[in-house]
Design a binder for these strands. Sequence first.
DNA 1: AACTTCCGCAACCGCATACCT
DNA 2: GAGGTATGCGGTTGCGGAAGT
Length: 298
Amino acid sequence: MAASQRSRSTAAQLDVDDQAAADQLMTMMRRPAAALQDEAAAEEEAADLQLELRRGPWTVDEDLTLVNYIADHGEGRWNSLARAAGLKRTGKSCRLRWLNYLRPDVKRGNFTADEQLLILDLHSRWGNRWSKIAQHLPGRTDNEIKNYWRTRVQKHAKQLNCDANSARFKDAMRYLWMPRLADASQLGDHHGYNGTTAMGDAHGMPVMTSSSSDSFATSESYDGGLYANVQDNEMVNGGDYYWMQGANQGFCSNYESEQQLHPHEHSQFQDPDLVGWVQGFSEGISENFWSLEDIWKM
DNA sequence: AACTTCCGCAACCGCATACCT
DNA sequence: GAGGTATGCGGTTGCGGAAGT
């Protein structure tokens, strides 16, 4: 992978970092009365120096080492794992690399319409709880979702001249994008938003059914409904969303989704100004405007 | 072609929480 | 319960490549 071959951390930079750490350590050693916790930190730094801890992009060799070690010994206990595997990385770095990139079930490529829809919906419900959101997108990491949100969704919020957390933008998501994404999903669009056949094809969003909970990493599941794991006080309309079996049978179906699909008939916008905005906008668009690609070009 | 700007994303950092002794 | 350590989480950074000039 190209990213792992990037050279963000040069040897020179490492030298500078090490020197800075060494300087700090020396300074502390000249202060016998320094706090004990500082001494502990210094010891840790000294150990790091001895190990010549690496930072920056992972190399292919490092990836192989980590993968092979985990294949043999399993994951967890990351600090000792890093040492035992002979990796000059922090346990934290190893964990991140494994979870976000090397894990065999990690899914790469563009988000499918289903996934985008789910992200928009869950974010509107939970905010920046990336990890919690990621638990409901098998194979996707919190980091990836977070990046998606920051680079794509926030960009569109900017284009709408509103904040991604504003009521106006949430209305736009709820009543414009999400219904259309649901439409796209019903039409079987399981590719990325840009219409290309990325890995989302081969590793596309699995069709979630009431028995698909095994594919989730946590004990939370969709059993009994899309938001079955949501706390009662987080439910919307009593939590009567439900995932419909089959790739082309839609994302959610209930009164609220009916509202989403026909916003003009319900006018539930939090931001009254958006009603006119939506109507004016809708009147001026072409018939094929609402392709996935176009939605994201808005 | 050369340069600049923008964008996507991997990786890092600091803090919070869980777990262990 | 206190203290130490490990792990998880969310925000931020900065590199590389694409797009624009």
